[in-house]
Design a protein around this nucleic acid. Structure first.
Lengths: 255, 255
DNA sequence: CGGAACTATTGATCGAGATCAACGAAAGAC
DNA sequence: GTCTTTCGTTGATCTCGATCAATAGTTCCG
C-alpha cells in the first residue's frame, strides 16, 4: 500500500486529523505500518464488539460516535459502566477472560481496530505517541473514578447535573455556542447514571421548570443558570431542594 | 549513593520484591537512578496527599496499605471513588487543576514518591517496565469501570457480595486458606459502595444469618457458600430475596 | 491504665426513587 | 407512504435503604 492510499484511508479519520490524538503523532512510516495492519469498522446502534473479534483485534480506537461498556446482571438489569468517544483507545489485551462488560454502540460509531503488534512497536519507539495514549488511558481511569463518585452518593438531580458538565467537558468547545450536545438517549443515560428513564425524564423537567436549562431537542441542552447547575452538581443540598424557593411551597409550572 | 545502600532502601519494598511489580523490572542502573531521586513516605489513617506535595511528587507507588481517592460534596457527603493497594502506581501529573478527589490513607500506608523525570526516562527505554505500568493503569481503569457498574444498579447486598469478590481477586492467593481479608473499615466500605454504615452492617448480618459467610473479625470473612455469594454478586434476584426460603415467610434468627 | 473519641450495631421511621401502568411521540422497516 | 417497534413522558403506588436515635464495642491517647 502506498502512502497516498493510506492518506486516503486515514485523512478522514479524526484520530489522525485532530492534532492532539494518537495517529497525528506518528511519522509517515509509522502511520503507514499501522494503517496497513489495521481495519476500520462502522457500527450501528446495538451492535456489539466481542468474543473472537476482540481476540484478534483487542485494541480499538474511536473515530466517531459513542461506544459503551455494558454490564448485564443475571436478572436482566443493565448498566453502562463507561462511555468511550472520539480519540479514546481501548486496550482489551488479555482481559477477555475476566468478567468484563460488552462493548456496545449507542448510535453510529466509526472505529479503527489497531494491530496489537504495530501498536506495541509504536508504543516502544515514539515518545509523543506514547504520551498521548498514556494520557488517554489515564483520563479513562480518572473519568471512571469520577463517575463512581458521582453515582455512589449523589441524588438523581445531582447526577444529571454532573453528567451535563461531563458532556460539556468532553465535547470540543465551540466558542459563541453554549449548546451542549447530549450524545446518548434517555434510556442510555439512565443506565449510565444508575437510575430509571422515568427519573431522568422527571429530572430534566425539573431543571427546565426551575429555568436552569432549556432542552430544545432530546439530544441537546442550553444551560441558562450555570452557577445553579454547578451548585447542584457539586452536591449543595440547598440547591437541590424542590422548587421551594422563597415562598416555601412548590411553584407549579405556569403555562 | 552506592548500590548496596539502594538495595537497603528498596529491598524491603514490595514494589521491588514482588517480581510482577514495577521496580522488579528495572536493571541496576535504572533502579539506582530511580531510588536516588525518589522519596518514601509512611502515612497513617486520615493522612492526605495533596497540594504542593503532589506538584513536585505527582507519581506515587503503593508499597503497603490502602490509599483511597475521596470526593467530598459541598454538604459534607463523602465518597471513596477508588482504592489503591500494593503495586498500584498513581500518576497525577497535570491533573491537580481539575476537580479530582483527595488521596487519603485508610490505615497505615507505605508508598514511594517517584521522580517524574526518571520515571519518564524508564518508561521510554525499558519495555518490560513500560508493560507493567501500562497494565497496572489499565487495571485501575477497568476496576473503576467495574465498580461503577456495581454501584449503579445493584442492591446493597449485591454490592457487598461483589466487594468481597473484589477483595478476593486483589489479594495475594494463599493456598489452603480461604479467609478473605477486608482491608478497610465498615465506614470506608460504606463510602466506597455508596451506602450507609448501618446498611453495610445489616448486610453482613444477613449474609451470616443465611450461612453464606462467617466473619470472625471485622477485617476478615470466610465464605461458606461461594456459589450463593456469586449468584448474589451477579444480580440474581432470586438469590437476594430475604430469608423467604421455601416457606415464603421470613425466618427469624433462632438463637 | 483510664477516659475520650471514634466506630459498629440494632431498632424505628421516613422519603427519594423504583416500579407499574398507560399513552403519545419518534424512529425504523418495508 | 403506512405499519411496527422502540423510546420518552406522566401519574400512582410501593419499597429499599437513608436517616434518626440509642447503645455497645474499639482504638487511640496521655
Amino acid at each position: 500500500m502506498n502512502r497516498a492510499e493510506i492518506k486516503d484511508k486515514c485523512k478522514q479519520c479524526s484520530i489522525y486529523a485532530n492534532g492532539y490524538l494518537f495517529c497525528a503523532q506518528l511519522d509517515a512510516d509509522e502511520l503507514c505500518a499501522l494503517s496497513d495492519h489495521s481495519r476500520t469498522l462502522t457500527m450501528k446502534r446495538g451492535d456489539s464488539l466481542e468474543g473472537e473479534a476482540l481476540g484478534t483485534w483487542p485494541i480499538v480506537a474511536i473515530d466517531m460516535g459513542v461506544l459503551s461498556m455494558q454490564h448485564l446482571l443475571q436478572d436482566g438489569r443493565k448498566t453502562i459502566a463507561a462511555l468511550f468517544m472520539r480519540g479514546d483507545i481501548i486496550d482489551l489485551r488479555n482481559i477477555s477472560n475476566r468478567n468484563r462488560g460488552a462493548l456496545i454502540a449507542l448510535g453510529k460509531v466509526k472505529l479503527c481496530r489497531l494491530s496489537p503488534r504495530v501498536f506495541e512497536q509504536i508504543m516502544g519507539k515514539n515518545p509523543k505517541a506514547q504520551k498521548v495514549i498514556w494520557e488517554n488511558l489515564r483520563d479513562q481511569a480518572f473519568r471512571a473514578m469520577d463517575h463512581s463518585g458521582d453515582i455512589a452518593k449523589k441524588q438523581a438531580l445531582e447526577k444529571l447535573a454532573s453528567f451535563i458538565f461531563e458532556c460539556r467537558n468532553r465535547q470540543e468547545k465551540i466558542p459563541e455556542c453554549d449548546t451542549i450536545d447530549i450524545p446518548v438517549r434517555r434510556i442510555d443515560l439512565a443506565e449510565y447514571l444508575g437510575m430509571q428513564p422515568e427519573t431522568v425524564s422527571r429530572c430534566f423537567k425539573e431543571l427546565e421548570q426551575r429555568e436552569i436549562l432549556v432542552a430544545p431537542r432530546l439530544n441537546a441542552v442550553r444551560i441558562t443558570n450555570i452557577p445553579m447547575l454547578r451548585r447542584i452538581a457539586n452536591g449543595d443540598r440547598d440547591a437541590v431542594i424542590k422548587d421551594a424557593g422563597k415562598h416555601g411551597f412548590k411553584v407549579l409550572k405556569i403555562a
